[in-house]
């Protein structure tokens, strides 16, 4: 999928993450900020990159402000931001690339 416009999903509440995606042209540029960056920074990056790869996002600038989100929440926020950037919210591929 292409990132067509800037989109944001999630909040800065505890157990959540705020994910912003913007159009890019040079692969994935990922910025992660987290209160648990030393323990989980690598894992957060892995989850975000895997999710983007599954969605077929090749070029994007992505910022994640993590507040202790579980993996399932990170995935949900990345997917939501990507689909929002494409203006899509119906007939989504649940269980397909969203999994």
């Amino acid at each position: 999928m292409e990132i067509k416009k800037t989109a944001v999903a999630g909040t800065l509440e505890s157990s959540d993450a705020q994910v912003t995606v913007e159009p890019g042209s040079d692969g994935i540029e990922l910025l992660v900020e987290s209160s648990v960056i030393h323990q989980y920074g690598r894992r957060i990056r892995e989850v975000v990159l895997e999710t983007l790869e599954r969605l077929g996002v090749k070029n994007a600038r992505v910022a994640v402000l993590d507040k202790g989100a579980l993996d399932c929440t990170l995935k949900a926020r990345v997917e939501c931001a990507v689909y929002r950037s494409n203006g899509m919210n119906e007939n989504l591929p649940w269980g397909g690339v969203i999994r």
Binding site: D71, C72, K75, A76, E79, C80, N89, L92, I98
Partner: peptide, 16 residues
């Protein structure tokens, strides 16, 4: 936020 809630729901149902 209806779309965001659905993404959260899907992964909660599948993974928790």
């Amino acid at each position: 936020q209806k779309d965001a809630a659905r993404f959260s729901l899907f992964h909660a149902l599948k993974e928790i």
